[in-house]
């Protein structure tokens, strides 16, 4: 693909994620979306940068803050927004809602509602992917590194040399609590102690993420074992819909907003990749217009009827085990 076009598409993808999250928030405030939501605003460059390095056979495991990873991986905005609203046409038929989206057609093996769950899922997927030159990627937050999943799976993946990339998005807070208040030592040091190849990157510059992603996928795909990436970033919204973010340090949010991944990308598109500000504006306007159409269509989408309740089990497909 044309490199310039690909660079603009990275920006468009991040705008798509930001706009999607703003739409979710507004629908939530209107009562059209129920339950809870965990928005990805501010962290778009991480999912977008890594997704740009995915091959068709690779697989992605994300978290309950997973709308951005889903969109970056290729889940359609329409099917995802329909899922937010619990509609029949949602990517999981309205069964999963915001926190647990699965879309295997688009390589998303799941968004996991329990912190650390993505780490285990990707580790397991890597066992299968090792057979077909694929790589699994697990996204999780700084809070997850204190879960058993983290230690057990990094060790498991390292001793089995599995092709898996562990991406810790350090957004400074585990839910409402600053990471350093509840975490001994440094984050990357934990992966280094297991002799897992590790790197800390700027998670708000999509090209810095992409560069690390390409190197990580190469390393894992070539049978060298897992990679750990700590991506430094920041969420611009509360942990979930009920969190006003009162725990933030004074001035912290404003300082990070100057490093908004969309601002950084816009500047680099103009300064380094020869786009005019008008071209960037037009791209952004185009994405926003399409999201407005998605929103309108979602609100008209049908609800699942009770006939769609389904079964707890899949029916037996293969021959049973009685015979030889």
């Amino acid at each position: 693909m044309d490199t310039l076009k690909a660079n603009l598409e990275l920006f468009e993808k991040m705008v798509l994620i930001r706009t999607f999250e703003e739409t979710v928030q507004s629908l939530f405030q209107k009562g059209a979306i129920v339950g809870t939501t965990h928005l990805y605003s501010g962290q778009e460059a991480v999912a977008t940068g890594f997704a740009s390095a995915l091959q068709p056979q690779d697989l992605v495991a994300a978290t309950y803050r997973g709308h951005g990873h889903a969109l970056a991986t290729g889940v359609t905005p329409q099917s995802l927004m329909d899922e937010m609203l619990g509609r029949l046409t949602g990517v999981c038929g309205g069964r999963s809602g915001s926190m647990n989206v699965i879309d295997l057609e688009h390589r998303l093996i799941g968004c996991f509602g329990i912190i650390g769950g993505s780490i285990g899922a990707a580790t397991g997927a890597a066992i299968a992917l090792a057979r077909r030159n694929g790589v699994a990627i697990a996204y999780f937050g700084d809070g997850a590194i204190n879960q058993a999943y983290f230690y057990e799976c990094l060790n498991f993946a390292a001793v089995r040399k599995l092709p898996v990339i562990f991406v810790c998005e350090n957004n400074l807070y585990g839910e409402y609590t600053p990471w350093e208040d509840v975490t001994a030592g440094q984050i990357r040091a934990r992966a280094e102690a297991l002799e897992v190849k590790s790197e800390t990157i700027d998670g708000n510059d999509v090209w810095a993420v992409q560069k690390a992603a390409l190197a990580s996928f190469d390393y894992a795909r070539n049978g060298n074992g897992p990679v750990f990436i700590e991506a430094l970033t920041y969420r611009f919204v509360g942990h979930s819909r009920s969190d006003p973010g009162k725990y933030r340090k004074p001035g912290e949010l404003d300082a990070w907003k100057l490093r908004d991944p969309l601002i950084i990308a816009r500047k680099r598109l103009v300064d380094e990749f020869s786009f005019s500000p008008q071209e960037v504006d037009a791209a952004e306007a185009g994405v926003k217009k399409r999201m407005e159409e998605v929103r309108e269509q979602s609100l008209k989408a049908p609800s699942p009827g009770l006939k769609k309740l389904g079964s707890e089990f899949m029916e037996l497909k293969r021959t049973g085990g009685g015979g030889a």
Partner: peptide, 19 residues
């Protein structure tokens, strides 16, 4: 490893991916 959570979850993930 002696890691019941990891090996159960790894089994889950491997099944999702086709095994």
């Amino acid at each position: 490893p002696i890691s019941e959570l990891a090996l159960s979850s790894a089994a889950f993930g491997s099944a999702v991916a086709g095994l």
